[in-house]
Simulated scan of single mutants.
Amino acid sequence: MAKEVVRRTETDTMRAADADRHKIAEQLKSALDEGRLSLAEYDDRVRDAYAARTYGDLVGLVDDLPRPGTSAAEVAAQRAAEDRRLARKLPMALMVLWTVWGSLAAVNLLAWFLVLVTVDSEIYPWPIWLLVPGAALGATTVGVQRIRSRRRR
């Protein structure tokens, strides 16, 4: 079983103020009013909120709750939008390869253009050969995205 890694930030260890505790208690009251928490859960969380010492303690009490007034349809729409965004995002290896290819293409085009304007004779357009690895990279990207979209279904 994989362990979940919890990263503590500097903010999580900072001391919370009474106003912060009260704000979390209000958010818990809204969740109770909307039926997201039972009365027993609400009592436990409010007690823990007023006993909390750090922001990390406070955030842990409400991180499983949506913003007050958010409906289930809005939560589902947000989740679907996040899933679509993640599906469009390229894997890091492809992002690196596209960056390298783009940089090489830009340098070659600039060099070819500088040679073209400084030499009186016609110059062979060697940067056109960069279309071959660009096409291969494009085909790989399309293939990877299709595989990823099939896995998500």
Rank of each mutant, 00 (worst) to 15 (best):
L114E: 10
P125C: 03
Q27T: 11
V132K: 04
G35R: 04
R151Q: 14
V117K: 15
M14D: 04
K23S: 10
R79K: 08
M1W: 00
L32C: 03
V59R: 13
L86I: 09
T13S: 12
P91E: 04
T70P: 02
R8I: 12
I123E: 12
W98Q: 07
K89A: 14
T13A: 14
T141L: 05
K29V: 03
E74Q: 09
S103I: 13
L131I: 11
A17K: 10
L116N: 11
V115R: 15
A2I: 01
T54E: 12
D57R: 15
R36L: 06
E10C: 03
D120V: 01
A135E: 00
E26P: 05
R152G: 11
W112I: 11
R8E: 13
R150K: 11
R21H: 08
V75P: 00
A16K: 07
L109A: 07
A16V: 05
M14G: 02
A51L: 10
V59K: 09
T13D: 11
V115T: 15
T13H: 06
L61D: 10
A25F: 02
S103D: 00
V6Q: 05
R21D: 01
D63I: 02
L137S: 02
G60N: 13
A139L: 15
V6L: 07
Y55L: 14
L110P: 02
T99P: 10
T140V: 09
L61C: 09
I128F: 09
M95D: 01
S121C: 03
T99W: 08
V5T: 12
V75I: 06
V62T: 14
I24E: 05
L104C: 03
P68A: 00
A77Q: 07
Q145D: 05
K89F: 01
A73D: 15
E41G: 04
N108T: 07
E4G: 07
V5G: 04
P133D: 01
L28P: 09
A49G: 10
D63F: 02
R8N: 14
L94P: 01
R47A: 14
V75W: 00
Q145P: 02
L37P: 02
T118K: 15
L39Q: 14
S30N: 11
A49Q: 13
R36M: 05
M92P: 09
L61A: 03
L58Y: 05
L116H: 09
V144F: 00
D18C: 00
T54M: 11
A87D: 14
P66Q: 09
M95V: 02
S103C: 09
I147A: 09
A17S: 15
T141H: 01
V96P: 05
R7V: 06
L61W: 01
I147L: 11
A19C: 04
V107I: 13
R36H: 04
L58G: 00
T118G: 10
D33C: 04
A25M: 08
Q78A: 13
G138F: 03
T70R: 13
A40P: 01
R15K: 11
R45T: 02
R88W: 03
D20N: 10
Q78P: 02
R47I: 07
A31S: 14
D18E: 13
V100F: 05
D33T: 12
L39K: 15
P127Y: 01
L97F: 04
D63G: 00
K29G: 07
K89E: 15
T99M: 08
M14V: 08
V144Y: 01
G56V: 15
